Computed example of a mutant assay.
Amino acid sequence: MPKRTKSIPVNIMANEFGLGIVIERLFAKDLQTAGIEDAKQSHREDGHSFFLLESGSVSMEIDFKAYDIQPPCIVYIHPDYIIRY
């Protein structure tokens, strides 16, 4: 299991109800207009993350290893993993 480093920020996933589970549908164009500068920095999420890639492709780093992900694909990211998009 990866060693935790205090200098890497943790993104809080809790929604307005205080739950640690968030389900939403995002499109690449929405992410670009929303400004995903924080996601471009190495970070962790405070919960388990699942991504369903239906179309397009995604390049990301998981624990400092680069991945080019092609659809159809489900990506699981554990809270201890350090990620960057």
Rank of each mutant, 00 (worst) to 15 (best):
Met1His: 08
Met1Asp: 10
Pro2Gly: 09
Arg4Trp: 06
Thr5Cys: 05
Ser7Pro: 01
Ile8Met: 07
Ile8Pro: 01
Pro9Met: 14
Pro9Val: 11
Pro9Tyr: 10
Val10Asn: 01
Asn11Tyr: 11
Ile12Asp: 03
Met13Arg: 01
Met13Tyr: 00
Ala14Phe: 02
Ala14Asp: 04
Ala14Asn: 07
Asn15Asp: 13
Glu16Arg: 05
Phe17Gln: 11
Gly18Tyr: 04
Leu19Gly: 04
Gly20Tyr: 07
Gly20Pro: 01
Gly20Ala: 12
Gly20Met: 09
Ile21Asp: 04
Ile21Thr: 14
Ile21Ser: 06
Val22Ser: 01
Ile23His: 01
Arg25Leu: 13
Leu26Glu: 11
Leu26Thr: 15
Leu26Val: 15
Leu26Phe: 11
Phe27Ala: 13
Phe27Trp: 10
Phe27Lys: 14
Phe27Arg: 14
Ala28Ser: 08
Ala28Lys: 12
Ala28Phe: 06
Lys29Tyr: 10
Lys29Pro: 00
Asp30Asn: 07
Gln32Met: 12
Thr33Asp: 07
Ala34Glu: 10
Ala34His: 05
Ala34Cys: 08
Gly35Thr: 15
Gly35His: 02
Ile36Arg: 04
Ile36Met: 08
Glu37Ile: 13
Glu37Leu: 11
Glu37Tyr: 07
Asp38Gly: 05
Asp38Cys: 06
Lys40Asn: 15
Ser42Arg: 14
Ser42Lys: 15
Arg44Gly: 11
Arg44His: 15
Arg44Ser: 06
Glu45Leu: 10
Asp46Tyr: 02
Asp46Ser: 13
Asp46Met: 01
Gly47Leu: 01
Gly47Cys: 09
His48Ile: 06
Phe50Ile: 15
Phe50Asn: 06
Leu52Ile: 15
Leu53Arg: 02
Glu54Val: 05
Glu54Lys: 06
Ser55Arg: 14
Ser55Asn: 13
Ser55Thr: 12
Gly56Met: 04
Ser57Trp: 11
Met60Tyr: 03
Glu61Asp: 09
Glu61Ile: 03
Asp63Leu: 10
Lys65Thr: 10
Lys65Tyr: 06
Ala66Lys: 15
Tyr67Leu: 08
Tyr67Val: 00
Tyr67His: 14
Asp68Ser: 12
Asp68Gly: 03
Asp68Arg: 14
Asp68Val: 04
Ile69Ser: 04
Gln70Val: 12
Gln70Ala: 11
Pro71Ala: 09
Pro71Trp: 02
Pro71Val: 06
Pro71Arg: 07
Pro72Met: 09
Cys73Asn: 13
Cys73Ser: 11
Ile74Cys: 03
Ile74Ala: 03
Ile74Arg: 00
Val75Gln: 02
Val75Ala: 02
Tyr76Arg: 05
Ile77Val: 11
Ile77Met: 01
His78Ala: 09
Asp80Met: 07
Asp80Leu: 06
Tyr81Arg: 10
Tyr81Gln: 14
Ile82Trp: 01
Ile82Met: 02
Ile82Ala: 04
Ile82Cys: 02
Arg84Asn: 09
Arg84Thr: 07
Arg84Gln: 15
Tyr85Glu: 14
